[in-house]
Amino acid sequence: MSLRWNYGEQPVHAAGRVAPVSKRFSDQLIAVLPRLRRFAAGLTRSASEADDLVQAACERALAREHQFQEGTRFDSWMFRIVQTIWIDQLRARDIRKENGEIAEERLGSDEPVRRVEARLALSEVRRAVSLLPPDQRSTLMLVTVEGLSYKQAAEVAGVPVGTIMSRLARARVALQHLLHAGASERRSTNDAEA
């Protein structure tokens, strides 16, 4: 492998079709990859699923580079692509829940016993997020984790700001309940074992 970067070569598919990739565009994309992975990790239920989602988003972004408008936020544009692909995947798998519905799965159901309390708490948070309805999960990740404003999140999601506000509040309240339920269940298990 050579480290010599970017001397103008472009990927060429074996069939001979040239896939032109602007270096500046791919540099922007590479710079935002850590945040895309974090966002995808909040949407999906496994690291590999999250990386597959980000990879698919990269491919779509490169194919639609011409649609990106200079002067607008690149990260928001990419978040939107990630979210769109994710929703398409959910629909394809027919597992999307109705708005406001929370999956019946509960914290701690079949989790292996964990040894480190701090890691347990953080992994329970991730697990609780994964139990939220998709719209709430996505809004929570965009605003609370990625730090987008309500207006920016509304643009990414393609909904009014008011919808973001209500989704976010419902997500935060549901999360509080889920975490509380998980903690109670863990306490009961510990008491029983004692």
């Binding site: 590479i30 990859l33 948070v125």
Partner: peptide, 23 residues
């Protein structure tokens, strides 16, 4: 919430994603 997902963004990005970003 932020702490729960922060470690993802501090992990090295897999090479396959960087390659994907470069097409």
């Amino acid at each position: 919430l932020r702490a729960a997902f922060d470690e993802v963004s501090s992990e090295p990005v897999p090479e396959r994603l960087i390659a994907a970003a470069r097409g």
